[in-house]
Structure formats: C-alpha cells, structure tokens
Nucleic acid binder design. Sequence first.
DNA 1: CCCCGACCCTGCCCGC
DNA 2: TGCGGGCAGGGTCGGG
Length: 292
Amino acid sequence: MPELPEVEVVRRGLERWTTGRTVAAAEVLHPRSVRRHEAGPADFAGRLAGRTLLGPRRRGKYLWIPLDGEEEAVLAHLGMSGQLLVGEPDRDREKHLRVRAGFADGGLDLRFVDQRTFGHLMVADLVPDTFDKAALVPEPIAHIAADPLEDAFDAEVFFRALRRRKTGIKRALLDQSLISGVGNIYADEALWRARLHWARPTETMTRAEAARVLEAAQEVMSAALAVGGTSFDSLYVNVNGESGYFERSLDAYGRRDEPCRRCGAAIRRDEFMNRSSYSCPVCQPRPRRARY
DNA sequence: CCCCGACCCTGCCCGC
DNA sequence: TGCGGGCAGGGTCGGG
C-alpha cells in the first residue's frame, strides 16, 4: 500500500492521538502480524504493557513509536493492506483486527488491522542513524536509505549509487536501500513527470535525469501528502478511517488507455515484477537498451 | 556480491 | 448465481 505520503498521514494521526499515553495491555490476535518479533507474540505484548508511547517517527514506508526510555520502539510496516486505527475501545472488532493496544487512561484504543497480513509490528532496539547522527532508528531498518522528503537525503549519494547499478530506473526507485518511501504508484508518477521510461538503464543515466526523477518524486509525494494521500478504496485511510484525495491527481498510475494529460496518447500498461507499470508511449519512449 | 523471479496472504471484480 | 482467473499500493528470500 501505503507509500510514503500515506504512511506520513498515519504518523501524524498517531502523533496527535497516542503521544504521551501509557499502554495498559496489548493483545496479538494473529501471530503472523508479529512474525518478525523473534521472541514471539507474548513477548511483544509484554513489552508494551505499562510503557508510554513517545512521538512517532517515520522513514520511507516504515513507522515507529519510541517507547519511554528511548532505547526501543514499536516498529510498524503496513505492507499492502495494513491500517493503524484509533477509536472508541468498545466498538466492534474489525474482521481483520490483528493487534490491539488499550491505554491506562481508558480512552481511544490503537488497532492494527491488516487484511492480507503482509504488514507487521515488532518491538526493536533503537540505534544511532547512519545519515543523521543526532537521530535514532530501529536496528532492523538501519540499512534502508533515507527518503527523499528527509533533510538527511543526499542526492549525490543517490546518483552515484544509481550509476553503480545495472538495472532499470523503476526497479531502482523501488529498492529501499537506494531510496526509501517510493512504491509502485509514485514511481510511475515520478517517471511520468520526468519523462523517463521505467526500463531506462540506471548505469547510463545522467546527473540531470537523476535530478529530474528525484525532484519529480519529491513533488508528487508532497502534493499527495497535502491532500491526505492516495485512496482508491477503504483500505487506505488515516487513523480515523478517512480517505485521501490524491487519486484524482494521478497522471499515469491506473490510467490504462486513458489520454496522457500532456500529449493525449493512450497510457499503456506493461507487466513489471508481477505487477503493473503505467506510462505514456510518446512522452516516455522505451529505451533501445532496456533493463528490467 | 548483484540481480531477478517466486512467494507470502485475502478479497474483489470480471468474464464465462 | 457460482466459479476460476487475474489483480491489488508491500518486503523477503533463494537460485543463478
């Protein structure tokens, strides 16, 4: 799902509704949702009981809530269908409720709802950040790159890493160790804006082309964030269950056979990594030497 | 090491 | 209606 803007919408909701509150008890209703917490579901729940949640942080598509003491954090990834929701504790249980935390103040509870269970939660140690020495990041994601909306993001480092790769630009944009936060929608949107084909080989990209696609990614994700993210359906919502409005602003993603908003040509859909890539056949011509 | 494809899940929508 | 196939915004892992 959720790419950077949608995860940031969730982070802002948590900041408002859970910061400073103390967990009374947590329960894990589906063990797969905490599969990366190696000590198991009971340990996960036990580590939350009695802990106070500090201000939530985000890098790329990962979200974490530092716990009092700032030595560890609840790390969350929403996968394709994960939601973090706050609401009245006595409301009905959602069909795909996986983890629930109730608070000592008896107020709104926090729920992790995830239809497809590709998302996960874990409690992880915080370690110093490689990019921003003053900051802490959860150890399991210390290896992922900064995201393009962070001050710590280094465009020159990104460009040099791109040139060392032998792959297509879209695959590189989706590689969280090169640049984090970009997923299938915003990769297509950034490439459309930058007029680059998804199979453009990274090793021959110019500094100007790399700057163009990077700037496009920053612009499109900022614009999406400003209107609450992209929602096609009820799976992608903020912590209060509300949808964003960016879908109406998409130029490429999901627009197969619809006219390109620049040149009028019919947007094409290609198979890519068992998924889809949308692009304009005129504005984004296939490179002679394509890489997938 | 790098790169790529297979795989993990559930539900919805479409065509037959 | 019922059913099978395709598709969905994620990451991980193992083979080449």
